[in-house]
Simulated assay, not measured.
Amino acid sequence: MNKYMSAAGLAGLDQNDYEDLYRIVEKDPDLYIEASYIEGKEYDERLIELTKYIAPNIGITLRGFLDRDDQFIRQLAFPVIKINEPVSKKYKRISPLKNEPAALTRSDFPTLGCSLYSYVQNLYEVSDGEELSSLTNATWKGIGISALSSAGMILLPMGKSENKELRAIEGKRNRLKKELFNGNDDAYEQLTLTEMQIYTTIDKRVKKNGIYGVISTTLMPRGVEEDMYYCIGQIEEISSSKIPLTEQIVYHFLLSCCGIRFCVSINKDTLIGEPEVGRRFKGIVWMQSRIFA
């Protein structure tokens, strides 16, 4: 995940610098999570997650295990954005990744139109050493989400007068999606007709104003990596952190995107444009989640 270390304000570090940072995390973590033993091997392993915050909202997490000599063996290292509260309380599922001690959560948001997959920050806290395959059908109390972006740009807001017609149709579509989501099969036909109406309206707008004059927000899957998304979201709040280790500035944007609110963090050096509340952020984001068990 070194690509997103730069998003956490650690751009320009070489491998030796990262190893020095990892040793600091191992020696003095802010969060230490030890899961249960894994049995059935030559010797029992204790699964470990260590997190050290390098800024109030930004941390580095190491995931690995203790060997028979109680030495920590690192398997993964990745940046995390602190998540304080859940945004969803329904339909959480966890899917293990192959060839690494990691997993994705899946949450269904009616306004998004597809399942949202995100990389689990606190895997060993909720799994407690169980085989990840046994957690596939687990349901949790809540899930909070955040994101990191390695590069992005600021877009101007859309004109409110131009959005009025489209917002009215989208509002109708969102209501129908919620009805369908709650089991009302009769809403399917009305939803199909509404989608056709939206397509016609958008087609006319694209020809007149271009694609960014039509799409106000979007969160669209990107490629085969399920936790990577194309994101356009409206900025509701802006804050920043200075990383003492590198003196780099990281912006934190609270975005409203497809009816979901979450924080996106990005290195100031990789952001094009001047961020302001009301403007839009556009970029590729790596979605993360914290499970509230």
Rank of each mutant, 00 (worst) to 15 (best):
Q288R: 14
C257R: 01
N57S: 10
T218C: 15
K141D: 14
I83Q: 01
L176C: 01
E165M: 07
G278E: 06
E19M: 06
R106V: 08
S88T: 15
V206F: 03
K52Y: 14
V120A: 05
I83M: 01
I81T: 12
H252Y: 06
W140T: 14
T217F: 02
S240W: 11
E34D: 08
W140G: 13
N122T: 04
K178C: 15
E131P: 06
E189Q: 14
Y230G: 13
I94A: 05
T270N: 13
I33S: 02
V80C: 00
K160N: 15
V206E: 04
G273K: 00
Y199D: 12
C263G: 10
E189G: 09
L135F: 13
L166Q: 12
R68C: 07
K82A: 14
K208Q: 10
S241L: 10
M5T: 01
E165F: 08
W140V: 13
A187F: 04
E170W: 09
D17G: 08
S6K: 11
P96R: 04
L219I: 10
K98C: 11
G159T: 13
E189P: 06
G9I: 00
R205L: 15
L132C: 11
C263E: 11
C258I: 00
S239V: 10
E226F: 06
Y212S: 11
L219D: 04
G159S: 12
S127M: 07
T218K: 15
Q121V: 10
T139D: 15
G12F: 08
T51I: 05
V120N: 04
A35T: 04
S241V: 10
A55I: 00
I272S: 02
H252W: 04
G213H: 02
S150L: 07
K160G: 14
